[in-house]
């Protein structure tokens, strides 16, 4: 486990934000235990024991691991109750998060065991200044496992976009410098095996590589 110089406060992740996944789960959402589709962003924390870096090896878990990558917004100043119109002015820069978790079986209860394994949230490699990114909605996150592309998620495919999420989340919790939001992962998390090399990239922004423990 290593400390991460980028995230020092809260790492807030947004689940169920891939519009294709939401469409696919539409019928399931009306059944127990959910009973209704979510009306708000579905959020979870990756706590400090999970924070990790580019190049880090990810511990294997006997129940298996899946990975998803997300565009991640890093805050450089306090962001409290902002509007969607002003939200992007609080962003210091953009980076990537790999969320290694146990296979997602249910979204009903907080998934502490699935989401809080040590070192399971590498963030990086670098933070690209917000001034270098004209429109975060135009970015695409590509993930490769052992060189083969396993997912391509255009940020425009997210149910809620970057500015709207910052606005909603900053009305629940004040965001501080060193806090970050992973805005959305591909709906189908990709299973990985021991020894797999996972590289995600956003063209022109940054790349993040991790290897699963052999």
């Amino acid at each position: 486990m290593s400390t991460n110089p980028i995230v020092t406060g809260k790492l807030v992740c947004v689940a169920l934000n891939d519009q294709q996944q939401l469409d696919k789960l539409d019928a399931t959402f009306n059944e127990a235990p959910y009973k209704a589709a979510p009306t708000q962003p579905v959020l979870y924390f990756k706590p400090h024991n999970t924070w990790n870096t580019d190049g880090a090896t990810i511990a294997w878990h006997e129940e298996g691991l899946v990975v998803g990558a997300s565009l991640t917004v890093v805050f450089g100043k306090e962001c409290c109750r902002t509007s969607a119109e002003e939200a992007l002015s609080y962003v210091e820069g953009y980076t990537l998060t790999h969320d290694f978790s146990l296979p997602e079986k249910s979204y009903y209860r907080p998934d502490i065991k699935g989401k809080c394994q040590d070192g399971s949230a590498p963030v990086g490699a670098v933070v690209v200044p917000a001034s270098d990114v004209a429109d975060p909605q135009a970015l695409t996150v590509v993930t490769q496992v052992n060189g083969e592309t396993v997912s391509e998620l255009p940020v425009s495919q997210l149910h809620r976009g970057v500015a709207e999420l910052i606005s909603i989340i900053s009305n629940i919790m004040t965001l501080q410098p060193g806090d970050a939001i992973a805005v959305g992962f591909p709906g189908d998390r990709h299973p990985v095996k021991q020894g797999d090399k996972v590289t995600s990239s956003i063209a022109g922004v940054t790349e993040l590589t991790n290897q699963v423990e052999a």
Binding site: Q40, Y44, I172, T174
Partner: peptide, 17 residues
């Protein structure tokens, strides 16, 4: 009021300033 059946109890219920 803010309880929803996703990661319940969700952050909007339990993680406010």
């Amino acid at each position: 009021d803010h309880l929803e059946n996703y990661y319940r109890p969700n952050l909007r219920v339990k993680s406010r300033d």
